[in-house]
Every structure is written in structure tokens, then in C-alpha cells.
Amino acid sequence: MALRAVLLISLIVCSFMRVADAGTRPSVAFLSPDDSRFWQMVAGFMEQVAIDLDVDLEVQFDTDRHRFSYLRMAQQIITAEEKPDYLIIMCKELVTTQILEQAHGQGVKVFSFNTDVPEATRVAVGMPRETLDSWIGHVVPDNVEAGRTLAKLLERRAVERGLVEAGEPVPMVALTGTQDSSAARDRNQGLLNATSIGNGQLLQLVLAEWSEQQASEKMSVLFRRYPQTTAIWNASDGMALGAIEAARNAGRTPGEDVIVGGVDWEPRALEAIRRGDLTVSLGRHFMGGGLALLLIHDYHHGYDFAEGRRSAALRYQFEAATVDNVHLVERILAPENWKALDFRQYSRVFNTQLRKQDFSADQLMDQFSSGLIQQGNSNQLVSQ
């Protein structure tokens, strides 16, 4: 999908209301699954949103990067003497149900984001508010569609570069994350869907554990195994950068005789797009934590995002960063623009005109993007 040209000027000039119960400042703990560059971006963005909305935010990083260490950290938070009002988590296989049930027992409300709810959790407790009213919401990017979109963009670019004839198979290898990651699993599924019906010829899908180093090492082996490789699909930008390194070591020229794409909008990936090494990065989901905070804030002050909806789970689409719009994406990623933008303008607490308007997660993410680009003095988002 293209980055949307949705500069909603009416949202820039807002009349803010005083909150009747402004003294009830919500406390929120965010449990990050690791301390990688991507999750540092997620946390940094959330911190700026929290400042504007007067939310007391605590961030903890799981440096062990394992589902059971994540569970232990969650348990420490929800059993502490001074508990937060809300806990923001990423759903992880095998431990999500335990976190939700234990938080419910301790009176801590939970908002999940970034990855789909594991099937085992859906079977055990359903979706937000179906059996656990303390699980107030869920917001997630469409990872399946991201995997499919990335594969199709790589196929198209390979044809445009003349590496294969139109309609001919595009030899492709793929590097993905960990086995316990639903984001990796869903992106893989999108890849498999695309290559099963399109022109992509998937040679092999390999676990690289979200690691740039592992991606480089494993891609070096894959180049020897599949010298015909024309496109490299990566479930993250970190792995894409590792694949680019391996391509150069193999005597290939990324962007010329092998097409590489990734996911995350990492700053180094955008630099690689500018150089021509990386063809595309799908992203904007780093703002998902900030969106969760906005929804929690309004819920806390009496404006429930799920009111009038069939579900308290929201979904949005990724956007593609390419050489055509990378300069605008860089403005969305600029911390100085996060600081300059007043996120109160998107809150129904502060803006009476928003309270009767329907909204979607996509619309709110579009508005975040547009507001951040305006801080960079841009007129519009350039479509992919």
C-alpha cells in the first residue's frame, strides 16, 4: 500500500479542553520484548506521546529476549506492591495467556499490540473483553499482508531491473525471525501466499533469529547453494542489512543484480535505500505503542475506543519506504519531530469534535504520519 497523502489540516488547529478528572494521571508500564534498535524507537516514540498526554510511563526491556524471561518480567510488574494501572505487552507464544490471567487476578489492565494474539490464547480466553474485562484492547499491524506485499514488491522490482522476463519465475530466498514470534510466522505466511500464486519462486525459507549477523552468515551459504538467487525477502531490516553484506561478499551488487527488501523502517535501512542497496522497507508500526497509549489515555478518562464496535481489537496496514519517499519517512522517524508534534490533537479527551467521529487504527496512524511530516515542512506524503 502507498503512504497516504492525508494531511488533515483541521487537526492542526485544535481547541483543547480541560479534562474534568485531570488529577487521575494513568500509570502505564510497557514491557519491550528486547532492546534492539527497533524497540528503542518504539519506546522513544511512546515517551513523547506520554509526555503530551500526561501519562506516567515506565519502560522495561527484556534483554534476554526469551518468552520465559518476558513472562518473569511481566509477573514482577503485576505483583509489585505499587502496580501500574495498565500494562502494555507484545503477545508471545506460550506465555500470553498466563500474563493476561495473572494481570486480571492482580487488577492490572492489559493492552496488547504489535503481534497477533496466539491461537492458544484465543482458545483459552478469547479476544479482548470477551472473557477477561481487564484485557481492554489490542492493536496490530497486518503482518500477513506485509509478507505478501514485500514479496510482490521484490518480484516487481526484479522484472523492472530486467533480472527476469515478465511472467517468468523470480528466484527468491527468505530470512525470517524466531520460532516463537507470531510476527515472523504471519509474515512468513504472507510470503508463502504470495509465492504460491505469483511469480516468486521461493527457493528456501531460513530462520535467522532477527539477527543481522546470522542473516549474513546464512545468506552466504544460501548464495553458494542457490547462485540463481535474484531476490531476498527479509522479515526485518536488520536481517536485510545482513543479507546485503553477504551479497557484497559473494560478489553481487545489491539493488542491481539482486533485489533486497525488509521490514521495520530502521534508520540504517533508510540509508541503504538512499544508496540503492535496499529496495524497500515496510514500516510505521514503530508508532503502534504510541497509538496504544493514546487509546489507553482516552479510555482512562471515559472515552472508550471500543464503544460502538464489535471488537476491542484494531488492525492497520504497513507502508512502504522506497527511494521515492524515503526523505518523508525520515521525517516521521525524526525524534525532534516527535517532540515538536502535540499528540493531544488526536485525543477525544481534549477535542470535542472528535468524540462523535468514527475512526480506525489506519486513520490514526495516517494522522500521526501527516503531523510528523508537517513538522518537517513537507506538503504531502509521496505515494509509492
Rank of each mutant, 00 (worst) to 15 (best):
N193P: 04
R224G: 02
L203T: 00
R331N: 08
E119K: 15
E165A: 15
K109W: 09
A208P: 03
E93Q: 15
D257M: 07
F350C: 03
D366H: 13
Q60M: 13
M1R: 11
Q179E: 14
A194I: 08
G251T: 05
A20I: 12
K218F: 07
L333Q: 09
P26W: 04
T63P: 00
Q374V: 14
D366L: 00
G302Q: 03
V139C: 11
R274M: 10
L381W: 09
G308V: 02
L191M: 13
F45K: 01
A174Q: 08
S69K: 14
T176L: 07
L270V: 03
A50G: 01
K152Q: 15
Q367Y: 12
R156F: 07
G283V: 06
F343V: 09
I296W: 08
W39I: 03
V117Q: 10
L8W: 11
D21C: 11
L87H: 03
Q106F: 02
R67H: 12
P254T: 09
Y70G: 02
T178F: 06
S236L: 02
V326Y: 06
L94T: 14
Q179I: 14
R129W: 04
S15H: 13
G376W: 07
G261K: 08
R315H: 11
Y226H: 01
Q204F: 01
G302L: 02
Y299D: 04
L381Q: 08
V123D: 08
D358Q: 09
P254W: 10
E256A: 11
S347K: 04
F30V: 08
L132Y: 01
L278K: 06
V13S: 13
V144N: 11
L191E: 09
E119A: 15
G23T: 09
S112V: 03
E256G: 03
R157I: 06
I78L: 15
F305G: 00
Q384I: 12
V280I: 09
D54P: 00
S112P: 05
V221K: 00
D186M: 13
K356D: 15
Y303P: 00
I273V: 14
P171M: 10
Q179K: 13
A151T: 12
I232N: 00
E160Q: 14
Q76H: 09
Q228C: 01
S196K: 14
S311N: 05
S383A: 10
V125W: 10
E155I: 08
T253M: 15
L354C: 07
